[in-house]
Each structure stands twice: as structure tokens, then as C-alpha cells.
Design a protein around this nucleic acid. Structure first.
Lengths: 175, 175
DNA sequence: GATGGCGGAGATATAGTGTATCATTCGCAC
DNA sequence: GTGCGAATGATACACTATATCTCCGCCATC
């Protein structure tokens, strides 16, 4: 869909910190709760974008949600918390902005989004998605990601945005 | 629809399937054209499923398409070739059957499907998807796939279906 | 040949996801 | 104040996916 279809502008080509050999950088810190919102605001403003009331509300809704949230889920949640309807397209606009600026990640196999726990640094992330309970685990494995990029480069393909998502059963559901 | 909706280059210009020189698979064979349909029919019937007229038409439409085809693309194509409308839900039913039996693969980031060039053997496959022209290259790299499965297992997650898709720019579009 | 079960396909409706377009509001520079 | 641009609102629409019920053809059985 959407972000991936018309929003086809490869992120790495849109100015993400990707090294010359097309391998992303590493080293990072994870945030939670209020600190996460602060980190997100900082990252967005440093990118020259505004941190508006609406954006704060949407980021908050995203960060509160355990597991992935669809744009429509977020629209409903924010509509409720502020007492006035938010149209889904407004949510999409802001989610796209978040994804472009590394504040959020899109989960392709779920048509959904998750907040990025470390907006400061860029990784090709791996999602482990439980088909039973819907829980999502977010891994960063630069070695694996770089293997995938290398593999693509070997064929002459210039990788921009690797998607690595594993459907299966999480630890607690498998027990 | 995937590529067509985004106003990308028509699929006819995209090179699919692409057999890459560095693709090393033991004991598997890729099929094309009539032989591919035969292989698909064989695989499906061996699984105890019927190879009906409708299924043959849909597989043919899928195999003819260069690049990914959405269920609606296929519904249109088959409707045209047989002169009678095929409802999308019928197409979905059959595509699901194909995916379950390894005759086709779903491209998650495109909401689309591609025929599997070697229905006889199962791999976790990797798609390289060109954001410019829509072309899809299908790699099988068991080593990489197994690394990803191992990485998931390390965390206690039981992997079932790894999705590995790389968005970027293909060799000819990058040139 | 009639009957009944079963799988495949058709028809229709609806839910869920994503985009396009234009209007409105608001803050800010001039 | 005026004008401009960014952000959001409102609306409509397109695309993707599923649910449900019906109908048809096949075939085993009687």
C-alpha cells in the first residue's frame, strides 16, 4: 500500500544517514515513556519539522499501544482522547512523516505502525510477529541486515529499505 | 494494484523472472512457460488438490505477468481472456491455495503475488523490488534465511514464515 | 435414474487500508 | 493588515481483503 506504494521514495535516498557502502550505522540508546516522546520531538525538530499538538497526540497514541497500531486505530484513539474526530488521512500524513524521520516504523505484513524506541539512530530492523497474540518484538541486527544488503548489492541491486519480518509464535504463546 | 497504481513503468518492461548467476541452489530446477504450468499442476495434484480450468487460468495469468500482480489485476486479466467476469474473491481463494501449496508467493510490501518458478522445493525467498520500474527479482538464499530464523529462535521465538523484501533500485534503473 | 453429499465457483455485501483534492485555519514575515 | 506557507480538516474515492450465501457439477450410492 500506500506508504510503500506511492510513498515509494526510498528512505535511504531521502537523506538518511547511510554510509557510502550502503551499510547503516550502529550504536544506540532506547527510550521509554516521556523520555521517548522527548527523543522523538528532538529528532523531528532537528530535522526542521514542527512538533505540533496533533503530532504529539499521534505519537503518544502510537507509543502507548502495545503491539502494532493501524492508522485507523490511531485515528480512533486520538479522536477519543481529544473529543474531536481526526480523519484517517491526517493520521496517515503524520505517520508518513514519522516513518520518514525514523520516529516510527511501518510493519509491512500488518499494515500497521510501531513507535521506534530509539529515533536517534538508524537501523534496518527486524520484527518478530506473533500470529497468536499479535505481539511484536523489534530486533536490531546490523550484521544480518548488512548481509541482506550485501546480497542485494551482489546482484547489482541498490538496496534502500530492507524489510525483515518473521511471522511465527512468540515465546509465551509457544509455551 | 501494486505497480500499476503507483503509475510506475508497466510490468511488461520489467524483467521477471530473473535468474541470477550467483544463485546457487542444490537440487532445484526453475521452470518457465508451459513447463512451469506443468510443474504447478503436478505439485498441486500431488497435494491432493484439483487442477481446475479456473485455477489453470489464474496460474497462467500470474505466470504471464512480469512483476507482481494484485488479485484484482488477475481478476481483470482472467475476466478478459475468458470473456466472463471473475469475482475477486474467487481469485483470492485460488491465490491463497497457490501460496499454501508453494505455487505462488505473496509479496507483502506490494499486496501482490508472483508465480513461484520452482514449486517443487521450498525456500524462504528474498525479493528485490525496484521502486522505479516495479521489477521483482526473486532470490533464494538459504544461508541468509537460516540466519534470520536462528536469530529469532535465539530470543525464544518460533519462526514460521520469514518475510524478506528489499526495496530499492534495480541494476538497469540505477544505471 | 434418483438422491444426497461435497468441493469449486459465483454473487453480493461489507470491512479495512490508502490517496487525492480542495478548503480552512493559523502563525509569521513583511 | 496583507500575504504566504505549513498544518490540518473534510470529503470523496480507489484499492485490498473477507464473509456469507447460493448455485452448479461431479460422483458415489442406492
Amino acid at each position: 500500500m500506500g506508504a510503500s506504494k506511492a510513498g515509494l521514495i526510498p528512505r535511504a535516498l531521502a537523506g538518511w544517514p547511510v554510509k557510502d557502502d550502503n551499510q547503516v550505522m550502529s550504536g544506540h540508546h532506547e527510550y521509554r515513556g516521556e523520555a521517548l516522546a522527548d527523543a522523538a520531538r528532538g529528532a523531528l525538530t532537528r530535522a526542521g519539522e514542527q512538533w505540533t499538538e496533533m503530532r504529539a497526540l499521534i505519537f503518544d497514541a502510537l507509543a502507548r499501544t502495545r503491539g502494532p497500531a493501524s492508522a485507523y486505530d490511531i485515528a480512533d484513539a486520538v479522536s477519543k482522547t481529544r473529543g474531536k474526530r481526526v480523519a484517517p488521512n491526517s493520521v496517515y500524513r503524520i505517520l508518513d512523516l514519522f516513518v520518514d524521520n525514523n520516529l516510527a516504523k511501518r510493519v509491512e505484513t500488518q499494515n500497521a505502525y510501531v513507535a521506534n524506541a530509539h529515533p536517534d539512530c538508524v537501523h534496518d530492523c527486524i520484527f518478530l510477529i506473533c500470529d497468536d497474540c499479535g505481539a511484536i518484538t523489534h530486533l536490531d541486527d546490523d550484521e544480518l541486515a548488512n548481509s541482506m544488503r550485501s546480497r542485494a548489492l551482489d546482484t547489482g541491486f541498490r538496496p534502500a529499505n530492507p524489510v525483515m519480518e518473521v511471522r511465527g509464535t512468540c515465546k509465551s504463546c509457544a509455551a
